[in-house]
Design a binder for these strands. Structure first.
Lengths: 248, 248
DNA sequence: CTCTTCTGCGTATGCCATACGCGTTACTGC
DNA sequence: GCAGTAACGCGTATGGCATACGCAGAAGAG
């Protein structure tokens, strides 16, 4: 009784489960070249600009040619992320605290999403299940290894941190995106948003918000790193408290 | 010197800044009816199914007719969210702790995103700037009112919680979505993912992940509420620690 | 009563993913 | 060395999408 293969088709290429042909004409293209061209497009103009014909155009061929190498655009997206996601940060070393390792892990992810802002424009299809994604999870688990946390708790907490990083990177990405679209600096966009708030938030309807604005909460110069560090510290404080209140 | 209006066009309708015509024929449709039809489509088949022609079809008219009422699809999306987002939970009452109020706030948001899963499929365009979104922020600020937090810190922390809620709801939504698409139960989808993990995660490459799987971390029955509560408690613990370590 | 302004809406443009099928190439088994 | 077969490049077509444009008719304003 042969077990049915549980790997969904979109993931098969990422796991190297596509046997390559021995017969037929020599391919003029390759999956790698297609993926590289698609990544170049995404880096230049964002993921929405990645269309089959655009990628084909970069390679001086037609859209349909790509389908000889890639089953669908979704599969291409998976391969793009798999190729562009670098390796995770080094796993926790011997003398390192779980917290320091978790911070490195989170910063590494934040940096990746800063280098490849189009990542966050790819519609996420489900839980992580590609080799690189699992490698990141593995490194995350290494950070929490040796703590009193249950395995399921570790996974929950990694998901928590991952969600935070993604959300924070998304906000940062939207800002830089808006800035680029309007030909402004990020600071100008933020200032503009502050002005909009100042204009829309009337004290009678949103008194506390008004107070926050008047206290200058919208006038802080842009510093995504600092925002990120602040929120991450809160989350890790929470994890810390959880570990502390638990029998060894 | 007339101040230039800083409200972006997409938001103008949401803020009631569209003056209605006095001349010309009587409109046969209305913005409200269009928005209601669009929401019905989104509830039935998800936000990607909301196209101008589909919505027009529900109203027995043509796609172009809608453009007499709505400037663009993006504007329609804003109006949809504005209409479907209910009012935020009641603001913090006198005897209530900030934490209890923040929990209610977060749960209210989580419930909303559970009732309207298509919310998370709408591509977010920027920081919150519609009346309802500001009302939610206002209620969030009420929860943190009276703490020693600086105004900017309050906003940061609300954003942190908001991001967490969104991410958690997104995961839950993807699960139910996948379940519906395959005609399975959510538990079956989770079990399937567990099987996939068991199949793909080899101990030589992902030892810690393998250990977590073998420890049954993937076999937990689905309980999004419990997952949500767990993560939220960690975050609020972190906020708590921050407030505690701060001079009154 | 005319002028202006708005309505409904058909048509058209230019994107998009991708199904299908044809002619051609090159390796495999005999 | 030759037939069979499988993979190649890719043109064409289908059906979707948002929305620009323009025209004909309706209705309030002067």
């Amino acid at each position: 009784m042969t077990e049915t293969n549980p790997v969904p088709p979109v993931l098969q290429a990422a796991w190297g489960m596509r046997e390559k042909a021995t017969k037929g004409p020599k391919p003029t293209l390759s999956v790698d070249r297609i993926v590289a061209a698609a990544i170049a497009v995404a880096r230049a103009d964002g993921f929405p600009a990645v269309s089959m014909s655009r990628v084909a155009g970069e390679l001086n061929t037609s859209a349909m040619s790509l389908y000889r190498y890639v089953a669908s655009k979704d599969e291409l997206a998976v391969l793009m992320m798999e190729a562009a996601a670098g390796d995770p940060p080094a796993p926790r070393t011997a003398g390192e605290t779980w917290r320091a390792a978790a911070e490195r892990w989170a910063y590494g992810m934040f940096a990746l999403l800063g280098d490849e802002p189009w990542f966050l424009q790819v519609p996420v299809a489900g839980p992580p299940a590609t080799p690189r994604q699992l490698a990141w999870m593995e490194t995350g688990l290494a950070a929490l290894d040796g703590t009193t946390l249950a395995e399921a708790e570790k996974l929950s907490l990694l998901l928590l941190v991952n969600g935070y990083v993604r959300h924070e990177a998304l906000l940062r990405g939207q800002m830089t995106e808006a800035a680029r679209a309007n030909g402004q600096t990020v600071d100008a966009v933020i200032a503009e948003f502050g002005g909009l708030m100042r204009h829309l938030v009337r004290a009678d309807r949103f008194p506390l918000l008004r107070r926050a604005i008047d206290a200058g909460a919208m006038d802080t110069p842009n510093d995504p790193e600092a925002d990120f560090t602040f929120g991450l510290a809160r989350i890790l404080d929470g994890v810390d408290a959880f570990i502390a209140h638990r029998p060894a």
